[in-house]
Design a protein around this nucleic acid. Structure first.
Lengths: 206, 206, 206, 206
DNA sequence: AATGAATGAGCCTTCATTCAT
DNA sequence: AATGAATGAAGGCTCATTCAT
């Protein structure tokens, strides 16, 4: 679809680099980043081991790039998709649902986020802005603040709500991955929304 | 020769074994179980490397024991502590608070639970009963069912509530660990309880 | 770029593999396969330790290959060399002499055969066809049967003769190795032939 | 059965030492001396590992003592048993048969002789007099010389005869061990005697 | 730009040996 | 004399990284 040499060359370069990033995420998610080897990644990408080092400085660099580039892009994409929704409650729910969709479409990205990113402390400390969970939390806090300001939801603590939502999403995905796709993630999501909306306590008593 | 031979021998054996388990959990939690070496564990426990193999068959065995013995014991202890509380809502909250207390007291156990157990799929598959998160989920589901039956809370989906609670707890701890203890975990916990009790939607509107 | 790509690659691979096999046989023969280390073999072959694992799966695999490839090839070669000799007695003697020549030329192969193969029971059981001593015995039995059928030698038990010959050869080499090449192995061989031909008992008395 | 304290104490000491030597030979013969561990020997002897070091300086010392004491004693015993036989040919055959009997009675000693002793170069060099095969060879050479001097056998090379006999014996036992006792060792022994007595060559032709 | 053979540091594990009891 | 827990050096093997082609 590109129509000049410059873009093509760039695309060529980008394609192999992206090919490697995709292969790396899948391999890292499947075997765990420590157990996965450069040979595994190279094999999955159908290139020679040495080629990996033409695009990434080291195995650790490759791992960091997976987090900061691929994962970050996916999350940006999700957040952007929900920005046009005006009702904050709907926006949060849409964000939730879009993430679920990503998970179903590219499960290895979900596994990578829920497993690898969490344990990568060195990454989190060096690149706090790229921690997907932090991105999610910040996004929810922002949305919640708007919702409160507009009176759309009760004046609750936005940070607490964010933790509730993101934590729920995280473990929901974890459970779904563990169930190997057997769990009805949408049904649970809907139930979660109901609880959050009305609370658990009977109205008369609360 | 202190008390009697039997106790001494048993205590002696148990002590060194427990010493190793504690050291292992801390080391595994800090470096990740794959990156951590037996030498690290031995050094932390101030014994020689070979000694580890007097009490555990392999590095993997040591990791499994950390999960199935130490972690499981802590979780049993927490669940047991809350069993006497009659009000289901209070019981769930107490369970939450006890877990927070454990985390504050032995942060490396928390880190081990939130990070290592999650990625140890092989363990989870072989020993589903020892997965702490599953234990938590089951416990909350049970408690929620009771609460619903007694009319103490609305007839919501217990499984959804469990995912909400445990997921929140999990990420709350993760955030607290990342903040290196700076976050006011109790305040957030209280806010979470408020949200869960009354819901986010203004009464009149919902 | 010498001849053609195919041959070069093949030759390159074969050469390093053969280099390792030769080094391994010498090291195994000298130190014993259990005491010999991969580092020893690598050092003798002037490669890095890891290189061994590019050509062989494990230390045990390397040992098996020494037996099944190198040793077997040498023995095939000896047996083939003697096949054209028509007189069975001469053929047996030629076989004996050729083996002695091999021993003198590549003493470490001889030592490997007399020492390592003997103790490698697991190998013998799994690959009975590659046991050099068994190969020798079978060959001698076959030749002896022909010799008997043609009336060239007395109707003795071929199996007993095989054991006599191969056993003698084995220990003769062992003695020669122990004497560090000082023993006149051909002279003894000739004497052995004399004894076998005429027997030890004076004609009149027997 | 001893009847004074001194002897008893000595016997006590000797018994545990002998117990260890027996256990060691069996273990060394079964697993190979390099693969066998001190723990194996201690377990077989039903003593603690440390006890081994009360009677032997090191694992190597234990191995040397197995060769120089136990094996040597067995061989002395065999040679002594045949000394009274006047006819040299009968004496050699009796020696052969006695060794076969030892092998059948204590196969692990046979395996130890045929396998372990052979590969223990360091031992052979340091203690040439204790090499069982050398002892056998020397004995046969002596007997053969007598037989020749008395005209009982042809004036052959005694050394060649010795190598013939001992080599045959060695491989015969090896074959028998490999056959797991299925081979009729006596029948083959008899055939071997026939061949040695009369030779393989038809009288008229030789 | 691409390859993959070669490297060697580092890890898990074993086991001969010691020593406090 | 006897024990066996503890030690730590050494070996097999892996894999991130390099470099000649």
């Amino acid at each position: 679809m590109n129509n000049n040499g410059k873009l093509n060359r760039r695309a060529g370069r980008t394609n192999k680099r992206d090919l490697l990033l995709d292969a790396a995420i899948e391999v890292f998610a499947t075997k765990g980043s420590t157990s996965a080897t450069i040979a595994d990644v190279a094999k999955k990408a159908r290139v020679a081991m040495g080629t990996v080092y033409l695009y990434f400085e080291s195995k650790d660099d490759l791992l960091q790039r997976c987090m900061s580039e691929v994962i970050s892009a996916e999350i940006d994409s999700i957040i952007k998709k929900t920005e046009s929704i005006t009702d904050p409650m709907d926006r949060l729910y849409a964000f939730f649902i879009h993430h679920v969709a990503l998970v179903k479409e590219k499960p290895y990205i979900a596994r990578f986020i829920t497993v690898e990113v969490r344990q990568s402390e060195s990454f989190s400390r060096r690149n706090p802005g790229y921690n997907p969970q932090q991105r999610y939390l910040d996004h929810v806090v922002d949305t919640a603040k708007t919702a409160i300001e507009t009176g759309r939801i009760n004046p609750i603590d936005p940070h607490a709500l964010a933790i509730l939502l993101v934590g729920t999403m995280d473990i929901l995905i974890w459970q779904w991955l563990a169930s190997e796709g057997q769990m009805d993630i949408e049904a649970i999501s809907y139930q979660v929304r109901q609880i959050l909306q009305t609370g658990v306590t009977p109205k008369a008593i609360s």
